[in-house]
Computed example of a mutant assay.
Amino acid sequence: MSLLKLEHVTKRFGGLTAVSDFNLDLQEGELVGLIGPNGAGKTTIFNLITNTYLVSEGKIILGGKDITGMKTDKITAEGIARTFQNIRLFSELTAFDNVRTACHLRLKSSVLSAVFGLPGYRKEEKEIDDKAMALLKTLDLEKYKNDLAGSLPYGLQRKLEISRALATNPKVLLLDEPAAGMNPEETLALAALILRIRKEFNLTVLLIEHDMSLVMTICERIIVLDHGVTIAHGLPKEIQNNPEVITAYLGTGDLYA
């Protein structure tokens, strides 16, 4: 079943076309990689999906609903969550409070009930606390719950950002270079984590990543961009052996260079 579709999506910045006629049909439960050299337009596509950038042409459809131009918070509420190439955490809040903040997206109680501490609000707050703690446990972050996010090692900050994204109850998870800055051991653990949370949380995942070993290991199919244009789309083995992809991506003849 098609969950997220991008139809002929184009983004122009003045006279520059950053993404041209991009199409995506992401099936429910899939894990798809989006790769390409720096400046290919990968993160721009994430920004278009979440309406950080306005679409110049085309449509974005989630579960049959046109979400093109919808406000970013509404898109999150519809079921799309993302992480960022440059980690965006509340560095002066604890790990626990970072996740709690994201949980509040689903808060149903009114401001008035919060001000007066009514039973319904207190019940929801307890549920949010329990959910935040459960997410920290899921990502093996429980012992860091009282640590400031900004004080955590880089790899743990990456995991915390994923935990915060999961707190919004997404259907689609957009991961923007989650392995950036990680060593091979951490990257291997990340691959296992992505596969585990996809299953546990019934997620559909779109992954931007430069670490080709990670992409080729966990992605079921791969889309390749170059200068905003899709130049290839296929199974990992097909992409790995595609001469045009190798030349465009690195110009070295070695996709793993």
Rank of each mutant, 00 (worst) to 15 (best):
T76I: 14
D147T: 14
L188I: 13
I162T: 13
L31F: 08
H8A: 08
L188P: 07
G36T: 02
T52V: 14
V205A: 05
G117I: 11
I75K: 02
G14N: 05
Y249W: 08
N23C: 11
V19K: 05
I128Q: 01
L175C: 09
D211A: 10
H233D: 15
P243D: 01
A257K: 12
G15P: 11
L188Y: 15
F201H: 13
A81T: 04
R196F: 00
V32F: 12
T217V: 00
F96P: 04
I128L: 05
R164I: 01
K123R: 08
L54A: 15
E244W: 11
L255I: 15
D66F: 04
E161N: 12
S151Y: 13
I208R: 01
D73N: 14
T187I: 12
G33S: 10
E209W: 02
G33N: 10
E127G: 07
G29P: 08
G234Y: 04
A192D: 14
T187W: 05
I67W: 04
S163N: 02
K71R: 13
K71T: 13
L173G: 05
I223F: 13
H104L: 09
T17G: 01
S213W: 14
A18M: 03
I61H: 09
I60Q: 07
N183A: 06
K143L: 11
H8E: 11
E7Y: 08
G58V: 01
C219V: 11
L206P: 14
D97F: 02
L141A: 03
S109D: 14
Q157T: 04
L24R: 04
L173P: 13
L195I: 07
L139W: 09
D254M: 07
L89S: 12
L62M: 08
T204M: 11
D21I: 00
L188H: 15
F201V: 03
E209R: 02
P236K: 02
Q85K: 07
I246G: 03
E92L: 12
G39E: 11
T94H: 00
G14H: 05
L16S: 10
E220A: 00
I60Y: 12
K74S: 10
H8M: 04
L214E: 07
L225A: 02
R198W: 13
P178F: 11
L26E: 08
G120K: 14
L148M: 10
L190W: 00
G117N: 10
R106S: 14
I223S: 03
G234W: 03
H227T: 14
I80G: 07
R196C: 00
L190G: 02
V111N: 12
G228F: 08
R12M: 02
Y121T: 08
S109R: 03
H233I: 02
I61E: 06
L6A: 03
V55D: 10
L3H: 05
P37M: 04
L136D: 03
N23H: 10
L214H: 03
T247I: 01
I223Q: 06
V99F: 12
